[in-house]
Amino acid sequence: MLAGTVSAADRIDINTADASTLQQGLTNVGPKKAQAIVAYRRQHGPFLRVEDLARVKGIGTATVERNRRRMTVGAMKAPTVAPPRRAAPTPVPRR
């Protein structure tokens, strides 16, 4: 393996990592920023793209770019959609 490269298995899933993992694995992310990431995720749901991390207060695009190869949003499942409900047939009056 080349020095400086990160495999997909080594990446931090920003949708599931706890504050400690975020702090230890990402550059320029200390305890307050790591906690802010977790709080944002709880309030707004999972990140769809790595770039969405810049929406967290205290995290800018420079931090996202610096850590891009260290992060992933994991395998996002497609939202499940219930089949459309069919209207109940109208009863036919008897003669």
Rank of each mutant, 00 (worst) to 15 (best):
87 A>P: 10
56 V>K: 10
68 R>Y: 10
12 I>A: 07
11 R>G: 05
57 K>F: 01
17 A>P: 07
75 A>Q: 14
64 V>T: 01
11 R>A: 12
44 H>D: 01
50 V>P: 04
23 Q>T: 04
62 A>D: 13
37 I>V: 14
75 A>M: 10
76 M>W: 06
72 T>Y: 03
81 V>T: 15
21 T>G: 02
35 Q>T: 13
74 G>N: 08
61 T>E: 14
53 L>T: 06
21 T>R: 12
57 K>A: 14
89 P>A: 09
62 A>I: 07
80 T>S: 07
53 L>C: 02
94 R>P: 04
23 Q>P: 03
48 L>D: 10
46 P>M: 03
4 G>V: 07
3 A>I: 14
25 G>V: 11
34 A>E: 02
67 N>D: 03
44 H>R: 09
46 P>E: 05
87 A>Q: 14
78 A>T: 14
46 P>C: 08
4 G>A: 12
43 Q>F: 00
80 T>Q: 13
20 S>I: 11
22 L>W: 02
88 A>V: 14
15 N>M: 09
34 A>W: 04
46 P>K: 04
10 D>E: 15
79 P>N: 12
86 R>Y: 11
78 A>F: 10
7 S>P: 04
37 I>D: 06
67 N>I: 00
43 Q>M: 07
67 N>E: 02
28 N>A: 15
90 T>D: 00
55 R>H: 10
91 P>N: 05
33 K>T: 13
54 A>V: 03
69 R>I: 02
4 G>T: 10
83 P>V: 12
3 A>W: 08
54 A>M: 01
71 M>V: 01
41 R>S: 04
55 R>V: 00
32 K>P: 00
85 R>V: 14
42 R>K: 15
33 K>Q: 08
24 Q>R: 10
20 S>A: 13
76 M>T: 15
51 E>Y: 02
89 P>Y: 01
16 T>H: 05
55 R>D: 14
